[in-house]
Nucleic acid binder design. Sequence first.
DNA 1: TTAGGTGCAAAACCTTTGCACACAG
DNA 2: CTGTGTGCAAAGGTTTTGCACCTAA
Lengths: 130, 130
Amino acid sequence: MTERRSTWQKAAVKDALTKADVFISAQDLHKHLSGENQKVGLTTVYRALAELADTGEADSLTTADGEMRYRVCHSPQHHHHLSCRNCGKAVEVKFAATEGWAERLASEHGFSDVTHSIEIFGVCAACAEN
Amino acid sequence: MTERRSTWQKAAVKDALTKADVFISAQDLHKHLSGENQKVGLTTVYRALAELADTGEADSLTTADGEMRYRVCHSPQHHHHLSCRNCGKAVEVKFAATEGWAERLASEHGFSDVTHSIEIFGVCAACAEN
DNA sequence: TTAGGTGCAAAACCTTTGCACACAG
DNA sequence: CTGTGTGCAAAGGTTTTGCACCTAA
C-alpha cells in the first residue's frame, strides 16, 4: 500500500506555507526556505505542495502566466478566492449562488464530469499604496 | 508609432483559429497549419495569437497544466466559457448576476484594479461517448 | 525606404522524472 | 529491514528573446 511518511521536510514546507499565508509558488516558497537554513530541495517542495493540495490542506491555482501557486486552506468547504495579484494575499469567498449553477448549466449543454474555477484578482489596499 | 501591418501569416493564423472554433494551444494550431502547406513559424503563431487576444478578436484561457489556449471570440461582450476538457469545444456563457458581484466584493475588501476569471470545464456529449 | 514582421536557434522558465542514497516506521 | 522520501542532475514542455533577413505600406 501507499503508506505516507512524515518528514521534517514536509513539515517545513507546510510550516512555511502556513506562515506565508498567501498564494505562493513552489519556487518562491523554496527561496523562503533556503533563506532560513531550511535546506529543502526544490523537488521536495513541489512534491510536498502537491501532497498538501491533494489532501485538501492547501488550495492551488494557476496564474495567467502558467505558474502554480498554493496557500494553506482555511476552510474545508468549497470556496473561491479573491487574491492580490501583487502579494498573493487572498480572501476566501463563498458564493452559494454559483455552486449549483455551474453544474446545471453544464448538463444543459450535455457536458459531464464538470469542474469550475472562479478566481478574482485585484490589487489589495496595502499594495495599492505603493 | 506602433503601426500594425497585415501579413498572410497573421491571416493564416486567424483563419485556422476560426476554422478550429475550439480552444486550442499555439502548439496545436501550429501543427494544423503545418499540415496544410501553411508554413508559418511557431514563434509567429505565438505572436499572432497574442495580438488577436490583445485586440479582443480571440479569447484566451490557461489550462490547469499551465498551457494557454485560444479561440475566436464570438461576441464582443464580456462572457465566460463552458469548455470541453478533451476537445476544446466551448459555449459562451453570459452570467449577468456575477458581473457586478466580483467588483463589488473586491472593493468591499479594499481591492482595486479587479479582473475575474470564471471557467467551467467538463466533457462534452460527443467526447463522453468514447 | 524603413519600421514592423518573420523565423530559426537558443534561452528562459516551470515542472517532472530517473536514480542512488537516506531514513521513517 | 523495507519501501517511501529526498535531492541532484537531466529531461520535458511551453513560451520568450536575440538577430539577421524579409516585406508591407
